[in-house]
């Protein structure tokens, strides 16, 4: 372990002394967050979104009003997180939960729903507002998961490829450093830069009014999720031919971008086509985002399934990555 830490320190210092690396560690995630927060934030919504539970045809009806965009869903928390109005219809009882800033729209919405349900004798409305969450809370917490993904996978494949290309690995391979220490050194580096990258994102979040709940469990989980993705990076790099290093980086790109965009990092699960929903829901980044949101946004204990799922993947990827990413043929 001593050699792994010595190596991690050398890699950290080497990379953080480079302006290019600093750009990718600090500014690139900030740009990405800004693009998503400003591009897809509540201000950019052309219509007020209404999530309807219990009456799909009401969602279609709302779409025809030109005032509201109706979608079908049952997750009230997710709806409010996206600044959607949430409508739950149960016979003649209608519950409306809305973000506080949308209170001026509620009378119109009530009238439209009343009109739609005109066949029902008495419609009773129960209306409440939530201060709750904003899309910024959602996107910034999702961005933290994205950072662990991109730093973990690209970090290992990119940094290791660079050291192979520079032939530093030739020298290290002849030293007493063991292969697993080398992999651990790279992984520790990825964890450190993920933590560094997270700070400016959270500061940006503050500017958008997002007050994250920073806890030891959040930091620990962020480290574990980076460990998992770094393990995945080690698997990719270990399987790639060392005389064709571009293969590792291409494979990392091919894997990371679909994982990033087919996840709940920027868009709610309900925004995806039904065929993709199971993939989006259970792919590792979405599960990580669920846990991160539970910890930093909702202040609730994450589900045991989510944590266990990530723990198993972490052990599997780190073990296989450590076995595949050999420094030398003799290991």
């Amino acid at each position: 372990m001593r050699n792994a830490l010595i190596t991690a320190w050398a890699i950290i210092k080497d990379n953080l002394s480079s302006k290019t690396t600093l750009f990718f560690v600090i500014f690139f995630p900030l740009f990405l967050t800004l693009i998503f927060a400003l591009g897809f934030g509540a201000a950019a919504e052309p219509h007020v979104m209404v999530m309807v539970n219990g009456n799909p045809s009401l969602a279609s009806y709302l779409n025809g009003t030109q005032l509201f965009t109706g979608i079908v869903g049952s997750d009230e928390r997710e709806a409010l997180l996206h600044n959607y109005v949430y409508v739950s219809v149960n016979g003649s009882k209608v519950d409306i939960v809305y973000p506080q800033q949308d209170n001026y729209l509620v009378p119109s919405l009530e009238a439209i729903i009343q009109n739609y349900l005109s066949g029902v004798n008495t419609v009773s409305f129960h209306v409440s507002s939530q201060q709750g969450f904003t899309y910024y809370d959602y996107v910034i917490s999702g961005m933290i998961g994205v950072i662990s993904l991109s730093n973990g996978v690209f970090g290992v494949t990119g940094v290791a490829a660079g050291y192979y290309r520079d032939r530093l690995v030739d020298r290290i391979a002849a030293s007493p450093l063991r292969s697993y220490e080398w992999v651990m050194g790279l992984i520790v580096y990825e964890i450190v830069i993920t933590l560094i990258s997270t700070v400016p994102i959270l500061l940006l979040g503050l500017a958008f009014g997002f007050l994250p709940l920073i806890s030891v469990s959040f930091v620990a989980f962020l480290a574990i999720s980076t460990l998992m993705f770094a393990g995945l990076g080690a698997v990719i790099f270990g399987l790639s031919p060392k005389d064709k290093l571009f293969v590792a980086q291409t494979a990392a790109n091919v894997l990371v971008f679909p994982l990033m965009f087919l996840s709940n990092a920027f868009f709610n699960l309900s925004a995806f086509p039904p065929l993709l929903k199971p993939i989006v829901a259970y792919q590792p980044l979405s599960v990580i985002n669920d846990v991160i949101r539970d910890l930093v946004v909702y202040n609730v204990l994450p589900s045991l399934f989510d944590v266990g799922y990530i723990a198993i993947l972490t052990v599997a990827f780190v073990y296989v990555g450590g076995r595949l990413m050999k420094l030398r043929e003799t290991d």
Partner: peptide
């Protein structure tokens, strides 16, 4: 062997920003 032998590989590169 690795603990006891020094090696100067062809075109040695160290950590370039250290």
């Amino acid at each position: 062997v690795r603990e006891r032998v020094g090696v100067v590989p062809q075109e040695f590169q160290g950590f370039s920003d250290l």
